[in-house]
Design a binder for these strands. Structure first.
Length: 271
DNA sequence: AGAGGTACCTGGCAGC
DNA sequence: TGCTGCCAGGTACCTC
């Protein structure tokens, strides 16, 4: 389940194999992703050169000479560069055939991902236009979160997972960042001090940085690899550790459902 | 406008 | 062993 660090790692992994290449063709074996695979892939992409690969939130942007492919990996998606004649597996839904005999292959068993097209600036696409800042953006800070929280009653965990506030904080990292900042995930967003938001903002950045670094060091080959990029072996302190000892105080980690999502925390260390 | 809930999808697992 | 049923997750979209 790709969270932002895995998307970033994918972006870095595939970029060298795509930059400057030409798309010779596109094969869509299954168009039923979250939204139907954009028809432009088939009628517009062939013949175009790849100019730039980048990431915005959890979206990968593949800019060409004439339009931009926007890819989201959903929960189970992955992208790899493989020889085009390699036999696709059941869940290999789309190939972008490159001019060097390889292809960029999208695999997505659960089909929560998407491949949509943007003719203009991808950042103005409806999916991207209203997103909050990247955690590394200078716009993002504890002050920013504090201001946005106002008097809102929503649980702080849901608040930081809202991509319209700040992008890239999925369930795993929301749990980890709140633990690092010592904040109870159930606490109302509007009832947290500016100072504690400053700690939280830094925790979000730190936890994502650490995961991206892990991704970089444990990066599997994005070419000719059968394996999935795999989960970063980042040491998680609370996520999926219900009943285990808190690494800080030794008390058992609690699990509770907040906003229909599993939430893990230490109710002694997080207030 | 904010808050809360639902849908989408399938591999993997627990329980029978 | 084989079946059923539930869960995981990101995000758009629905309703109140």
């Amino acid at each position: 389940m790709p969270e932002l660090p895995e998307v970033e790692t994918t972006c870095r992994g595939i970029a060298p194999h795509l930059m400057g290449r030409r798309i010779d063709g596109v094969v869509v074996r299954e168009h039923r992703l979250r939204w139907p695979v954009a028809p432009q892939l088939v009628y517009q992409m062939p013949g175009l050169g790849v100019r730039r690969i980048s990431r915005r939130a959890k979206y990968l942007l593949l800019e060409t000479d004439n339009g931009c492919l926007i890819v989201h990996l959903g929960m189970s998606g992955s992208l790899r560069v493989v020889p085009h004649n390699k036999q696709p597996d059941k869940h290999d839904h789309v190939d972008l055939v490159l001019d060097d005999g390889n292809c960029l292959r999208l695999r997505d068993p659960r089909r929560f991902g998407c491949m949509v097209w943007s003719d203009g600036k991808p950042t103005q696409h409806p999916l991207l236009a209203d997103l909050g800042p990247e955690p590394w953006d200078e716009k993002f800070s504890g002050e920013y979160l504090y201001r946005l929280a106002g008097k809102r009653k929503v649980a702080v965990k849901n608040f930081i997972m809202d991509a319209h506030k700040v992008v890239g904080v999925g369930n795993i990292y929301a749990n980890e960042a709140l633990f690092a900042a010592g904040i109870d995930p159930r606490r109302a967003a509007g009832r947290i001090s500016k100072k504690r938001y400053q700690r939280l903002a830094q925790a979000i950045i730190d936890v994502l940085d650490a995961a991206i670094e892990q991704g970089g060091t444990t990066l599997r080959d994005f070419v000719n690899s059968d394996g999935e990029p795999g989960y970063f072996s980042l040491e998680l302190k609370v996520y999926d550790r219900e009943g285990d000892d808190c690494t800080n105080c030794g008390r058992p980690i609690k699990r509770e459902v907040i906003g229909q999502r599993s939430t893990f925390f230490c109710n002694r260390c997080q207030r």
